[in-house]
Each structure stands twice: as C-alpha cells, then as structure tokens.
Computed example of a mutant assay.
Amino acid sequence: MVESRITLGSTVKNLKWNWKREPTKTDEVGKLFGLLEQIHDYGWAQRADSWKWVGGGPANFSVYAVKKLFIMAQNYSDFYKMRWNGWIPLKCNVLAWQAEIDRLPTRVELTKRGVILQDINYPLCGDSTESSAHLFTACIFALEVRDQVARWCRLPPLYAFDVRDLRTIAKVLKLRKHERRTVHSVNDFMVYLNC
C-alpha cells in the first residue's frame, strides 16, 4: 500500500500519486502541502508495510483487548443514578429527573440549541434567566410554594440551591423512612406543579 506509493533513493523520496482528479482548489492544495510538511522529515524504512497492535495486553490483536481498552477509558464519575419514586405518577418522576439533569426545554436550554428568543428571562418573575435551577429553587414564586407546602407538612423551611438539592433534601432531614419518602414525593410533585 504505502510501499507502492513511495520509492526511496539515497537522499530523495519519490511520491507516486494515484489521484482520481488533481487537487485544484485552494484548500485542497493547502492540505496537500500541510501533509507534505508533516511527512518531510519522517524516517522512512525500506521494508514491507506491517500493522502493529499497540493497544496494550498481548501482542496479538483481539476484540476482547479492544473492549477492555474501551471499558478502561470510560469515565463513570459524572453519571447520576436517579431514584425513582413509586408513590407519584411516572410523569412527575420523569419531569423531576429531567429538571435534575437540566434537560427541560427552558429558555436557556433552547437558546443553547439555536432557538432564537426575544427574551430569556423567566416571564413570571423577570428576576433571572429561565433555567431549571431558577424555576424550582431560586424563583420567588417557587420559594413561596415550597415554604407553604413545608409549613403544611410541618417541616422546617426547605432551602435548596439546585434541583438535586431539592430532590435529596429528604435524606438530610431527621425523619423516619416513611416520612422521608413522603417528603421526597411531595418535592417531586412540587417540581411537577411548578411547570
């Protein structure tokens, strides 16, 4: 393959091109010259082409070795395991999960995806941009709803800085298991009601 395209003399490298068409456009010629600059000082050897597996493990290539290499390269530190709640409807669980991983179609997320909007501020309060964190934790209306529900449930005021804080607040409170699950359900349902 490469051997049939390059002939080496004592000081000269002859490249035999096999073009379907000659490079004529400026960018094509520029890429060709860039390639030639990269290979100019390469130390070519007079031998047959060969492939070498450098993926680690045994010297012979195997599908198992590639699979092992991929598994070692994966980073699971950012993965989040969602705790689903069977006491509330599935749509509430899904919405709470989407809010927690910041995948709701808020104005901020829509502009990230190229949707042109006149204003990205939250129209209900106008204090900040419309993001999941603002909708469920920072907006004055969300704070008031959460405060009223906490009072109704005879809980201390619930402070959260992010949706994940709001969803895990039941673990922090010193409650029995049944009460923690109730608080978790109420918080997830409040996320659903705020939309």
Rank of each mutant, 00 (worst) to 15 (best):
L155G: 01
E144N: 15
R21L: 02
A48T: 08
N121V: 02
G126T: 01
W17A: 11
F79L: 15
T24D: 13
W84C: 01
G43Q: 03
D27F: 12
L155E: 07
T11A: 01
E144S: 10
G55Q: 06
V163Q: 01
V54L: 00
Y159S: 14
S132C: 08
D127G: 08
A150T: 08
V108I: 10
E3D: 00
T24A: 08
M1I: 02
V163A: 00
K91D: 06
I71K: 09
T168K: 06
L173Q: 03
S4N: 04
A96R: 10
L95H: 08
C195Q: 14
L158E: 13
K81I: 07
V2D: 01
D49P: 05
S132D: 06
L69I: 02
E109N: 11
N75G: 07
R5S: 04
T106Y: 06
L90S: 15
K91P: 01
S50M: 13
L8N: 09
L8R: 13
A142L: 09
L175Y: 05
V2E: 00
V66H: 05
F70S: 03
R180Y: 04
T111I: 05
L95E: 12
E37H: 14
H40R: 11
E28L: 07
C139M: 06
L193I: 06
L175A: 06
S128A: 00
R103M: 11
V54D: 00
V63F: 08
K81P: 03
H40T: 09
A48Q: 04
T129P: 00
K112W: 04
L36F: 14
F141D: 11
P58T: 04
G56H: 01
A65V: 09
R176V: 11
K20P: 15
G57D: 11
K31W: 02
K25L: 02
P105W: 14
Y76F: 07
K171I: 09
L90P: 11
W87K: 03
I120L: 12
S131E: 06
K177F: 10
H134K: 13
R5C: 05
M72F: 13
D41V: 15
N194F: 05
L173P: 02
L117S: 08
C153N: 03
L173R: 06
S50H: 10
E109A: 14
V145S: 09
R146W: 10
F33E: 14
V145E: 10
K177T: 12
A73T: 12
P89A: 01
R154S: 08
W87N: 03
W53R: 00
G57A: 12
N85T: 02
I101H: 03
T24F: 06
N14F: 14
L8C: 11
G9F: 06
M190Q: 15
R176C: 15
L117A: 11
G114V: 09
A160M: 12
A48N: 05
L124A: 12
V29G: 03
R5Y: 04
K67C: 03
P105E: 14
T26S: 07
P105T: 15
G114M: 10
R5T: 02
G86P: 02
E100G: 10
A96E: 09
T106C: 04
C139S: 11
R180W: 04
K174I: 15
R83N: 08
